[in-house]
């Protein structure tokens, strides 16, 4: 399949079941909501070493937030509810509780409840106060700038992590420009995050390594600079490959984001140096969800 001069591989992205939640972070203004959100979702690119994958989903207008202030919705994904609970507590405790004027609320009401402010309240050293308003419990924790208002729990729901596609271009700037265009389009899709820096990852991995201590290593088949000495999957005109990884609350959300990203890259087309689009998988044996590029484009 060729679209706008770009070869679309007959490949699929292999994704996994995860657990996810959304947290709404508000502050005096959007800048400070972002400061807290960026800190809370920092170092959260991959569950392999970060404990969770997290990112900013979207900005929220004051009318959309529980306390009527500007806010940001973040999504957090982990391999288990237990690990996600641990990560929520650490990240909200260290990055949102600490951020001036911030407040944190559940962004998912259903699902399995997990502590948001339930344990963070103890920072109040006995001066914390609970308020039960509209069927929800909130904690008011006294802090030096006033009060940290935090909802007691947030909901954990089943989710999908690891959707992806690879952009193969003639040069590094062209690969990056195509991915940037894809990310702009994908950020308009609700319920998804692209957890890597700027939404783009350049170090795709394969399972296993020559070093016993490592369970994953560089995806040499897609590394252009060693094309001559490995079983490369790159043709001579491909000079750079970048990947976009997608986590979403449902498989449909991941599909929608993939579609938005593919469309944006294809729109640039061969004229912008994009040669091929592929996807990462493990032969289909490890992940429950398969996102076939051609089927998504045909849908």
């Amino acid at each position: 399949m060729i679209a706008n001069g770009v070869l679309i591989d007959d490949e699929f992205a292999e994704a996994f079941p995860m657990k996810a939640t959304r947290v709404i972070i508000t502050a005096q203004n959007l800048q400070w909501a972002y400061n807290a959100a960026h800190a809370a979702t920092g170092f959260a690119t991959s569950v392999i070493a970060c404990g969770c994958e997290a990112g900013v989903e979207r900005e929220l207008a004051p009318e959309e937030t529980p306390d009527g202030r500007p806010g940001v919705a973040i999504l957090l994904f982990a391999m288990s509810g237990k690990e996600l609970g641990k990560q929520i507590e650490r990240r909200i405790g260290q990055c949102v509780l600490t951020s001036p004027t911030s407040a944190a609320f559940a962004g998912i009401d259903g699902g399995e409840p997990v502590a948001l402010g339930k344990n963070l309240r103890f920072f109040g050293d006995g001066f914390q106060q609970s308020k039960f308003i509209g069927g929800k419990r909130y904690w008011r924790v006294p802090v030096m700038d006033g009060e940290f208002l935090v909802e007691e729990t947030t909901g954990i729901v089943p989710a999908v992590g690891g959707g992806n596609f690879l952009v193969l271009a003639e040069s590094q700037p062209q690969a990056l420009a195509a991915c940037e265009a894809a990310i702009v389009a994908m950020k308009r899709v609700p319920n998804v995050i692209m957890p890597f820096p700027g939404g783009v990852v350049r170090s795709g991995s394969k399972v296993g390594s020559k070093y016993k201590a490592l369970s994953a290593s560089t995806n040499d088949a897609f590394c252009p600079t060693i094309r001559g000495i490995t079983r490369s999957q790159l043709s001579a005109e491909v000079g750079s490959v970048m990947e976009i990884v997608i986590d979403g609350l449902t498989a449909d959300d991941v599909s929608a984001a993939t579609r938005a990203g593919l469309d944006a890259v294809i729109r640039l087309g061969a004229a912008a140096g994009v040669r091929r689009i592929s996807a990462g998988n493990y032969g289909g044996k490890l992940g429950k969800y398969h996102f076939r590029l051609r089927e998504i484009l045909a849908s």
């Binding site: 306390d67 202030r69 308003i133 909130y138 008011r140 006033g146 009060e147 208002l149």
Partner: peptide, 8 residues
């Protein structure tokens, strides 16, 4: 003070 829980 302005207390944000009053908004809720």
């Amino acid at each position: 003070f302005p207390l944000s829980f009053l908004t809720l």
